[in-house]
């Protein structure tokens, strides 16, 4: 829990003329779960995409395991042990569950352990085992999210970037997925989690940052933010309105 695994300094990302991130700085320590909260368009997904190299930063630094990764391509970043489970799941719909999982391991060198890891993923989510020769497009939303998560895990990541694993999924499945994430946390996987569901995110996370229109407006430990839901809601919305989520917290 001590050394910093990921450090972002004054990150700025533009999409054409639109500035998506301005001056974002954050850090994630090894073994920590950090939540990135914020409304739509706040820049949460962009932050993850910048880390995994899918978008290039205009300026600022991204340091992972004491190495500057801001100029590396996605392949190199995946090979360093950073896995990105993207927003909207993005499984390969025409390919089977097994093919999706094998693809997740495509940057690994220890081919002999891959089958054992696939079995481990099936233990984690037995439903995927039943569906292993089905094409991913035929799975339900929840099953696809399980597949997206396990596909990312097939890279044996040191750092897992998760983009809205609860998006559009039945509450029961969300609970199952977050229970699995809690297990992963215990095994020491570092997670940077983007979520709209503040409540469930703060229950899993150690710390959280709240983004609004491309800037970090609030950060603190999860327990502190859970108790101070008013401030989270304010940071979220830019006003004093209490949301359903924060009331529940």
């Amino acid at each position: 829990m001590s050394e910093t695994l990921l450090k972002i300094e004054q990150l700025e990302v533009n999409y054409g003329a639109v500035r998506a991130l301005k001056n974002v700085s954050l850090e994630v320590k090894s073994g920590e779960v950090v939540a990135l909260l914020g409304a739509n368009g706040a820049g949460k997904s962009t932050t993850l995409r910048a880390i995994s190299g899918l978008v290039k930063a205009k300026s600022g630094g991204i340091t992972y395991a004491n190495q500057n990764i801001a100029r590396l391509n996605p392949t190199q970043i995946v090979a360093l042990g950073v896995s990105h489970s993207p927003e909207g799941r993005r499984v390969f719909p025409g390919m089977t569950v097994l093919e999706n999982l094998r693809l997740g391991a495509s940057q690994r060198n220890d081919k002999e352990n891959i089958q054992a890891d696939i079995d481990r993923m099936f233990e984690m989510f037995p439903i995927l085992s039943e569906r292993k020769t089905q094409t991913a497009g035929t799975l339900s939303g929840g099953e696809q999210q399980m597949l997206a998560l396990t596909r990312a895990l097939m890279n044996r990541p040191k750092m897992l970037l998760l983009d809205e694993p609860s998006l559009g999924i039945a509450p029961l499945i969300v609970r199952q997925i977050f229970a699995t994430l809690a297990e992963l946390k215990k095994t020491g996987t570092t997670i940077l989690l983007v979520e709209q569901n503040v409540n469930i995110a703060l229950n899993l996370a150690d710390r959280a940052y709240v983004l609004r229109t491309g800037e970090i407006v609030l950060n603190g430990s999860a327990s502190e933010l859970r108790l101070n839901s008013e401030r989270v809601a304010q940071a979220y919305l830019g006003g004093g309105i209490e949301t359903q989520d924060s009331r529940a917290a």
């Binding site: 996605p74 993207p86 093919e99 094998r102 495509s106 596909r151």
Partner: peptide, 23 residues
């Protein structure tokens, strides 16, 4: 082959393919 699998992954979803390290 594994390369063929990567080929099909780029067909299915280019962004997701990049996300798992396929060029």
């Amino acid at each position: 082959s594994p390369f063929g699998r990567a080929m099909r992954a780029t067909r299915e979803d280019g962004i997701a393919a990049q996300g798992i390290g396929i060029q």
